[in-house]
Design a protein around this nucleic acid. Sequence first.
DNA 1: TCAATAGTGTCTATGAGACAGTATGTG
DNA 2: CACATACTGTCTCATAGACACTATTGA
Lengths: 224, 224
Amino acid sequence: MTWTATNSEGYAAPVALATDIVVLTVRDARLRVLTIDGPGGRRALPGGFVGAGEAPEQTARRKLREKTGLADVYLEQLATFADPGRDPRGWIPTVAHLALVPSATTPTDPGARWTKAPGRRRWAFDHEQILAAAIERLEGKLWWSNVAVGILAGAFTMTEARHVYEAIAGRAYDAATFARDLKATGLVEATGERRAEGPGRPAALYRFCDSTPRWGLGRRKRIA
Amino acid sequence: MTWTATNSEGYAAPVALATDIVVLTVRDARLRVLTIDGPGGRRALPGGFVGAGEAPEQTARRKLREKTGLADVYLEQLATFADPGRDPRGWIPTVAHLALVPSATTPTDPGARWTKAPGRRRWAFDHEQILAAAIERLEGKLWWSNVAVGILAGAFTMTEARHVYEAIAGRAYDAATFARDLKATGLVEATGERRAEGPGRPAALYRFCDSTPRWGLGRRKRIA
DNA sequence: TCAATAGTGTCTATGAGACAGTATGTG
DNA sequence: CACATACTGTCTCATAGACACTATTGA
């Protein structure tokens, strides 16, 4: 039995407005997406219904806090998926969001897992399409904006940053060239600190100047 | 009196799902947006309500046909605006679209006009914000995709194309460099025809290889 | 001392801006 | 012929890839 809704003018209305969140991070040199159990043993994206008087972004942040315990997260709107029949429960458009969280994030929700992205898992609803849009957006903005600040929150070494960029771009970068070019974006600054990880010369630490979405200086970088 | 809606589970639902369309073109060397009369003498974007069983993109195409008489139009989803209170009639999220039409397009709707974008006009609702998002999207994709095919439908000379690109980018391009770089995107092809406009050597004609959204070869071009 | 990791310098290929000069039309 | 517009060739600067070389740590 599907749900229905009617407005005060007598016309059919959407049953609800949903939001789905593509939570991405880089773990073990792989891009991974946070998934929950969906119907039919398929993977699904976390999400929920937008409350009356609530902006979709607020809903997304609220759900993200419930799933990961994180309050300050890089979050941006991705696109809206509203094809008829996308949700068997009825007419439920969803405003998809892209969120990036630090590598060390552990889901607080016991049903949530990190899944390789892209991978061979079967997805519920139109979530595979939403995931594809999220990855394309992330790749496209990688060298042009500070998106990566979501994963590289706090201080990081150039080597750590490089591993994150490599997992997202799906290619290797020369270490020297990488450092030069990341500095050239004007988006990062040195903290002045250093960090030693095992043997070898300690690495200088950097941080992104802003944690809110910003565009870089318009340099180019080949992804493929 | 604001509208309301309730779904079959007893919860408040959106009153309706709307779509607004930012129809852009280049006329008289200026970027222009199609506007209709909104409340309070303000300018408004054309749009309408998404019907039950309809995808928002279909609604946008239907409305576009009513306003301009055009059936095949470059159209892509822009973003969804759903802040509470954005529409005084009630909870009405809108899926905004970006559409590009040829320069010669004349509105069939008598209330519709071409308005300079950006300009100093006052806008209804959150339409100024939607327009700003559309212009940013168009500028950002200009040299990376075939967006301009929406305006340069059919065959065009390099000079015509340059005028369109200049109006969108807000800067002048060297004619020789422009032609070289537009060809280098791999998105256009020569038709083999020529066209004479007054005195001077006739210009070769080109067309975009695809009329559906495509990405170019990843070259760069400075906008500012 | 060596191994390991971090960081610097530089050579080269390519794309983009600028512009001089050539080609081909109309009157 | 003059003039106007279209097109070609080329110089130069900036960016990105590659890689040799130096620097700084722990064992």
